[in-house]
Amino acid sequence: MQRSLPFQLFRYAAIALALAITLVPILWMVSMAFKPFSEWQSAGANLTWIPNAPTLDNFRFLFGDSGSDLIVALDRTAGKPILSSLLSATIGTVIAMTAGTAAAYGLSRFGSGANLPLALIQLRLFPPMAVMIPVMMMWAFLGLMDTWWGLALIYGIVTLPFAFWLMKTFFDDMPKEIEEAALVEGCSRLRVFTRVTLPMMAAPLAAAALFVFILNWSDYLIALLLTTREWVTIPVYMASLSSSMTGQLYGAKAALGLIAAVPPVILGIMIQKHLVRGLTFGALKQ
């Protein structure tokens, strides 16, 4: 459609503004991650978008090398928190997706009534804090405090409703005739599920898993409450990056932020094909 020039200008200005608001902090983080101590610590002195002397010192610092001009040293390196985040978020996603997919399939095909599916999201009715304190006590009792498996378990439980609801919508949309066709051929229910349903649901599964993973990966509150030292995750660890001498270690935080952004981006690129192919199934004339 042909639109007037002022409208086009306004449109691009609006888009540019939106992009600036969302992208500037990210670009600033990337820039900061490669700045040496002298550049990121002296705020206001010489703010530059491009580091004058790009360096990997911030990354080295995170992993234990106290660098050239930074006089503080960390009492723990970023390695363990990264491992903790990877383990808890991944296993949590596996738990949520496995249980959520199975529950969604069962309720979508054999369930009746709307109460049970709705009951699954009641955890979301409470402010997280109200739920987390009792959980903390239970975890302490079970000896799951400050362990990656304790975190993975609670992540799986907290994101289960999301996995369930996403997958239920997808299962509801999948034509049941495809399964019936396999059943008529003498296929067992379980086999229909593993050989026909799941392969056809590859795209929705991937999309839901990415969504759940990002939720787990970016959690701060739960990890803050359930871990103390051994298995703190990236967000909790990041908050502790400061020292009495230099204050907030912005350079190290930016470097860690950049590292934290990598897994979701890689996952996103990996399943992009599925995301783009979308959630329509070619078998049915809609």
Binding site: P175, I178, E180, A181, V184, E185, C187, S188, A283, L284
Partner: peptide
């Protein structure tokens, strides 16, 4: 159950396994 009836069934919307 339908798998044990030994019938062939053709659906209006084909129900082809697209994968």
């Amino acid at each position: 159950p339908m798998g044990r009836r030994g019938v062939g069934f053709v659906f209006q919307n084909y129900a082809i396994f697209t994968h």
